[in-house]
């Protein structure tokens, strides 16, 4: 039987098309855009945003939202620097960073499912909480004022160094691999299927015997763990955890998901959508910077793009709905005859 393209595949192609178009545009306009150096930096920046967005996409596909990812990055980053200071190697810090981020996510999930608070309010509040926690652990001098503090551990710092002499960072590689793994998880396992189910219709999923609370908690843990992972790499790259770490990252990550095709409200999109969305936004940021453009113009372009993505998705949903109704009728006839 001939396999027809479904709407998510078409949406995927559109995003890929946008990324290619943007690459073409910028490489025509700026001779430096496709240089090894620029691509390596571009992928590092995209990976920072993209790791957070990939984790967040799990929560968003499940119909939720996680506004605390910025706070998780901040708190985890600062905690990681402390962990390395007590003598742990960079690899231990990496693992503990993921666990710390996951624990923050677990807290979110616990509040949302056990105390039955909405995701929006819970994670908005816990986001502030995590930022505050970051400040509590921040390095201070004898007078109690904040001070800059460098990471000492060489293994930790090496996580933020380029892999090859020409560039290319570990975070980018990790990002690509994890996005692929997450795609498999979302489409080929029960966990992923259930996440789509609760994002699409929570009540129906519950009636079908899906443990909604468990899936939601796992989603939040994933979101937190990915943010924690991003925090480890970013602190390693910046050689410190500044208190402005992760600031506003939650909104950029949501924007990346939306541009990539994760629908607010759930049920559509996956980690690869988040991957492409983050790549697109990072590319836009990188490309526009080449032209010494004022930041307000960059903001306007980014904002318009997100609006266009949402408007497009709502229109696209209607068009593809009609198309699929027709298709279902045709194929049902051929199948049964």
């Amino acid at each position: 039987m001939k396999k027809k393209l479904n709407s998510s595949t078409i949406r995927r192609f559109i995003t890929i098309g946008l990324v290619i178009a943007l690459t073409a545009l910028f490489s025509l306009l700026s001779s430096n855009f496709l240089s090894m150096y620029n691509l390596s930096e571009l992928f590092r920046n995209a990976a920072y945003l993209g790791l957070i967005a990939c984790g967040l996409s799990v929560v968003m596909v499940g119909g939720g939202i996680d506004l605390s990812v910025g706070g998780i990055v901040c708190a985890t980053g600062i905690i990681c620097v402390h962990l390395s200071d007590i003598g742990l190697s960079g690899y231990m810090v990496l693992i503990l960073g993921i666990i710390t981020g996951g624990a923050f996510g677990l807290l979110n999930g616990f509040i949302v499912t056990k105390l039955k608070l909405t995701e929006f309010v819970t994670t908005l509040a816990s986001g502030f909480l995590f930022f505050g926690l970051g400040l509590v652990f921040a390095y201070r001098d004898d007078h109690g004022t904040l001070m800059a503090h460098s990471i000492k551990s060489n293994t930790y710092l090496s996580l933020g160094q380029p892999l090859l002499p020409g560039g290319f960072y570990l975070i980018s590689l990790v990002w690509v691999v994890l996005a692929i793994i997450l795609w498999v998880v979302m489409h080929k396992t029960e966990l992923g299927l259930y996440t789509f189910a609760i994002g699409s219709d929570e009540k129906s999923a519950r009636m079908s015997g899906v443990n909604v609370a468990k899936i939601k908690v796992i989603g939040f843990i994933m979101s937190g763990a990915f943010s924690g992972l991003a925090a480890v790499f970013v602190t390693a790259y910046e050689r410190t955890a500044s208190t402005s770490l992760g600031n506003m990252r939650e909104f950029l990550a949501i924007a990346a998901c939306v541009v990539g095709g994760v629908v607010l409200g759930g049920g559509k999109g996956d980690a690869v959508s988040a991957f492409l969305g983050a790549l697109f936004l990072a590319m836009l940021d990188n490309g526009l910077r080449k032209f010494g453009m004022d930041s307000y113009v960059v903001y306007m372009i980014q904002g318009s793009l997100i609006l266009v993505a949402i408007a497009f998705d709502s229109q696209f949903a209607k068009i593809s709905y009609r198309r699929r109704v027709k298709e279902q009728r045709l194929s049902a006839q051929t199948l049964t005859s």
């Binding site: 080449k290 032209f291 113009v297 306007m300 372009i301 408007a311």
Partner: peptide, 21 residues
């Protein structure tokens, strides 16, 4: 219509931006 307006708006911003650079 709204979607078209948004698209046009975005395009014009992009064109303006590219013209500036």
């Amino acid at each position: 219509f709204l979607a078209v307006v948004m698209a046009v708006l975005m395009m014009s911003v992009a064109v303006f931006a590219l013209a500036a650079c």
